[in-house]
């Protein structure tokens, strides 16, 4: 009980702001509009309607490749920076800026730069490329927006993780005969992989919930109609809160499933001894 008392404020906070609304949503999703009692009607309606069910595939086809791309590039950029580089502070500041600016401003910037009348297109037209590829208000636009938003966060997380690894490990591997690539594959990668898995899990969850970017730089009525948009339309266009709740629960389920897959692989690595130790710890 002595332990419980200091925890009380945070428990109340969680109960009031997370657990209660969450349970409320789950219960609401089981009470389809215009019916009495509980049923799975909303879920059936969602999965049986191709226009609705398709949003899962649309979201996954954005979230999964984007997660892989973001994490991969973050590793590629952060790894060479692990011992510090020139202008590191400037580079880091530039990379962090998108987090500070917020989604909408970033989306506006993307429209301004990559849009049909954006700087990039004008440059390409001036260079004589008459019919450049359309980069906004479609799948590509959303991919760019999500990357811009999530890369900095992923990069910073991995940079911290990678630079926390004792430089002497790398040095001893070198002296023992490992070339730089072998150092990465045999020493550094096994040590950073657990961190990469966590970064991937977080980016995936954020990607799967994509909403503003999908609306502002995507094509919300078609190829980037994500689950979040479906839930929004149910809630605020058709005012069908139970249906919206059901869609939100499905979305949460997918996010949890993604997490489970990533954490399963992480666990398997630790079972083989790879992830038994974190960065810098011995």
């Amino acid at each position: 009980m002595r332990i419980a008392l200091p925890l009380l404020p945070s428990v109340l906070y969680l109960l009031a702001l997370f657990v209660y609304p969450f349970c409320y949503g789950v219960v609401a999703s089981l009470q389809p509009r215009g019916t009495v009692g509980f049923s799975l009607g909303n879920y059936l309606a969602f999965f049986l309607d191709p226009w609705q069910a398709r949003t899962l595939w649309v979201t996954a086809s954005i979230a999964v490749p984007n997660t892989l791309l973001t994490v991969l590039l973050a590793v590629v950029v952060a790894y060479p920076m692990r011992r510090g580089i020139r202008f590191e502070r400037t580079i880091t500041t530039l990379l962090v800026l998108p987090i500070a600016l917020g989604t909408v401003l970033v989306a506006e910037g993307i429209n301004g730069f990559y849009g049909p009348k954006g700087w990039l297109n004008q440059l390409l037209l001036a260079a004589g490329i008459a019919d450049p590829t359309r980069l906004t208000h479609n799948y590509t636009g959303v991919m760019i927006a999500l990357f811009v938003q999530h890369f900095p966060f992923c990069f910073l997380m991995l940079l911290g993780y990678i630079s926390g690894i004792d430089p002497a490990l790398e040095q001893s591997a070198r002296v023992l005969g490992a070339r730089p690539w072998q150092v990465f594959r045999r020493v550094m990668w096994p040590l950073i992989a657990p961190g990469v898995a966590i970064a991937a899990a977080l980016v995936f969850v954020m990607n799967f919930g994509v909403f503003p970017s999908a609306v502002l730089v995507g094509q919300p009525a078609g190829e980037t109609r994500t689950v979040a948009i479906a839930a929004y339309q149910a809630a605020f266009e058709r005012y069908d809160m139970p249906m919206a709740s059901a869609i939100a629960v499905v979305m949460g389920g997918c996010q949890l499933a993604g997490l489970a897959v990533i954490l399963f692989f992480r666990q398997r690595m630790s079972a083989t001894g790879v992830a038994t130790v974190g960065a810098g710890k011995r």
Binding site: D166, A168, L169, Q171, S172, A173, V175, L176, G177, V187, P190, L191, G273, V274, A275, T276, V277, K281, R282
Partner: peptide
């Protein structure tokens, strides 16, 4: 082709 022993041993923890 040298060998090196470090102050903090630098053993590969994994």
């Amino acid at each position: 082709g040298f060998g090196m022993v470090f102050q903090n041993y630098a053993l590969f923890p994994h």
